[in-house]
């Protein structure tokens, strides 16, 4: 690496599409996605790892994109909220569950919740109540009081368990 502090190209796959953009080392992955790649569905609420609004799937695992430098995602495969709909463009099952259970109000936290829940259900389609709470308590929502988010999560879990 010629200049360890300078901008370099970061190449990664986001929602199945290869993307390349420049980043200096300190550029947070959240900013890279939002402002370099224009994927503004991933939100930023705290930039210190607590609120979960910035959660994305990095090589299949849910991570805080505000705690990852874009350069660390070189070569990685990412999924963001923009990649959750089905191939046909229809909302995915987790998205539908949030709509049907009124699991969202302002919707600012929603992408993070959708990703956290997707990650859990992909790993454990029949996740227990405890696992649901564990996964969702890593995301903050200030509007809904969580009751409907939990209801949406249970509905999505039941569907996922059925499919599995």
């Amino acid at each position: 690496m010629a200049d360890p502090g300078g901008e370099r190209e970061v190449r990664l796959v986001v929602n199945g599409v290869e993307r390349v953009a420049a980043a200096e080392p300190r550029l947070l992955l959240s900013d890279f996605l939002r402002h370099r790649l224009g994927l503004t569905g991933t939100h930023v609420g705290c930039e210190h790892g607590v609120c979960g609004a910035c959660t994305v799937l990095l090589d299949g695992e849910p991570v805080r994109s505000c705690l990852v430098f874009a350069v660390q995602a070189e070569g990685a495969e990412l999924r963001t909220v923009e990649g959750l709909a089905g191939e046909d463009g229809e909302l995915g099952p987790v998205q539908r569950a949030f709509h049907e259970a009124h699991g969202m109000q302002c919707g600012f936290c929603t992408p993070g919740f959708l990703i956290s829940l997707t990650a859990l259900l992909e790993e454990r389609p029949g996740a227990s109540e405890e696992e649901l709470v564990d996964a969702l308590s890593g995301n903050l929502c200030r509007c809904t009081g969580y009751a409907n988010i939990l209801a949406a999560a249970r509905a999505a879990r039941d569907q996922a368990a059925e499919r599995a």
Partner: peptide
Amino acid sequence: DERLLRGEGRFVDD
């Protein structure tokens, strides 16, 4: 809901 669920919301920072 639909726009927000797809990550197509438009907040000021977007």
